[in-house]
Amino acid sequence: MQITVIGTGLIGSQLAAELTARGHDVTTASLSSGVDLLTGQGLDAVLAGAHTVVNVTNSPTFDEQSPAFFRTTVGNLLAAGERADVRHQVALSIVGTDQVPRLDYYRAKTLQEELLRGGPTPYSIVRATQFFEFMEPAMSWTSDDEAVRLPATPVQPIASAEVAEALADVATGSPLDAILEVAGPDAFTLDEIGRVTLTARGDRRPVIVDDQAGLFAAVQGDVLLPGPGARLGRTHYRDWLTTT
């Protein structure tokens, strides 16, 4: 199958490698390769002959400008896909994205999903929980030399490699015309993840529960946890920490 992967970051690079290993004909596209989703430049060339396109791009900002980014880029990608007779549009999104209206980026991802559902092409949406690789950077936003401050937000993070595997399975199957959720095998509160991570790193700083700290302070309840029927990964966060 001929598949175009839009985005070559953490997920896109692993997805392209996974699809190639499975024997598919993969084209990757990003700004560095001359494809600009905002202007549409280069899209027709990278979608020529593609059966499926997988969009794993991110907005360059997570602020109030992010909805405009997705409105423009999804519109350009859907239009180019229709011209190229793409049969399946796949997008990576976030578990709970439609339940956190206080976050600009989550509202933007909800808009992306709405545009894809309303588009002309059969689609699949893969909603993932937070990546293992995202946990330490998130902790750094609310850390200093003395302590780490984190809200007690429930999360169920997943290894990015397993997100790429799920995307590869969806991309090579029939369109879902629905949402698939993927998550790791274990749920934690964010402050608990902080303590687990610091212990694994030999860091003696305490974790202080602060419900006003960081990006996830805007999250209410357990909306970032997957629902029934989610696909769960195999890798446990504590085990993953020992390999990184």
Rank of each mutant, 00 (worst) to 15 (best):
residue 32 S to A: 15
residue 73 T to C: 12
residue 199 T to A: 14
residue 68 A to M: 07
residue 205 R to V: 06
residue 159 A to G: 03
residue 129 T to C: 10
residue 68 A to H: 10
residue 43 L to N: 02
residue 106 Y to M: 06
residue 126 V to T: 07
residue 197 T to E: 06
residue 200 A to F: 01
residue 174 S to G: 12
residue 8 T to L: 13
residue 117 R to L: 08
residue 196 V to I: 12
residue 219 V to G: 02
residue 44 D to V: 05
residue 79 A to C: 00
residue 232 L to A: 04
residue 24 H to E: 05
residue 169 D to P: 05
residue 220 Q to F: 13
residue 20 T to P: 01
residue 214 G to M: 00
residue 190 L to I: 03
residue 10 L to S: 11
residue 28 T to M: 11
residue 34 G to M: 12
residue 244 T to P: 15
residue 103 L to K: 14
residue 86 V to R: 06
residue 244 T to R: 15
residue 130 Q to H: 13
residue 63 D to R: 00
residue 34 G to Q: 12
residue 114 E to N: 15
residue 64 E to Y: 15
residue 150 L to W: 06
residue 103 L to H: 13
residue 179 I to H: 01
residue 172 T to S: 09
residue 62 F to P: 03
residue 89 Q to H: 14
residue 131 F to Q: 01
residue 19 L to Q: 10
residue 204 R to T: 04
residue 146 E to T: 09
residue 126 V to G: 03
residue 87 R to I: 08
residue 219 V to W: 04
residue 141 W to R: 09
residue 237 Y to E: 03
residue 189 T to A: 13
residue 118 G to Q: 11
residue 178 A to D: 08
residue 160 S to M: 09
residue 155 V to Y: 14
residue 74 V to K: 06
residue 27 T to G: 14
residue 182 V to A: 04
residue 122 P to T: 02
residue 33 S to W: 00
residue 63 D to I: 02
residue 200 A to C: 02
residue 121 T to W: 15
residue 237 Y to F: 12
residue 61 T to L: 04
residue 81 G to L: 05
residue 112 Q to T: 08
residue 203 D to M: 06
residue 133 E to N: 14
residue 122 P to E: 00
residue 197 T to M: 13
residue 124 S to R: 06
residue 137 P to A: 01
residue 184 G to Y: 10
residue 225 L to E: 01
residue 19 L to C: 10
residue 92 L to D: 00
residue 14 Q to S: 08
residue 120 P to G: 09
residue 118 G to R: 13
residue 31 L to S: 07
residue 136 E to A: 12
residue 129 T to S: 11
residue 101 P to Q: 07
residue 175 P to R: 13
residue 215 L to W: 15
residue 229 G to T: 05
residue 219 V to Y: 07
residue 149 R to V: 05
residue 136 E to M: 14
residue 62 F to Q: 04
residue 8 T to N: 13
residue 70 F to W: 08
residue 130 Q to N: 10
residue 213 A to C: 12
residue 195 R to I: 07
residue 95 V to G: 06
residue 101 P to M: 07
residue 3 I to G: 09
residue 180 L to F: 04
residue 80 A to T: 09
residue 155 V to L: 14
residue 76 N to F: 01
residue 196 V to C: 10
residue 117 R to M: 09
residue 206 P to T: 02
residue 218 A to R: 15
residue 74 V to D: 07
residue 15 L to D: 04
residue 22 R to N: 02
residue 212 Q to C: 12
residue 107 R to E: 04
residue 48 A to N: 10
residue 225 L to W: 02
residue 188 F to K: 01
residue 173 G to W: 10
residue 36 D to A: 10
residue 119 G to Q: 01
residue 96 G to T: 06
residue 125 I to N: 13
residue 170 V to Y: 00
residue 190 L to H: 11
residue 171 A to N: 09
residue 156 Q to C: 10
residue 194 G to R: 15
residue 70 F to I: 03
residue 79 A to G: 00
residue 206 P to L: 05
residue 39 T to Y: 14
residue 93 S to R: 08
residue 21 A to M: 12
residue 127 R to H: 05
residue 78 L to W: 13
residue 80 A to D: 10
residue 183 A to Y: 00
residue 156 Q to W: 15
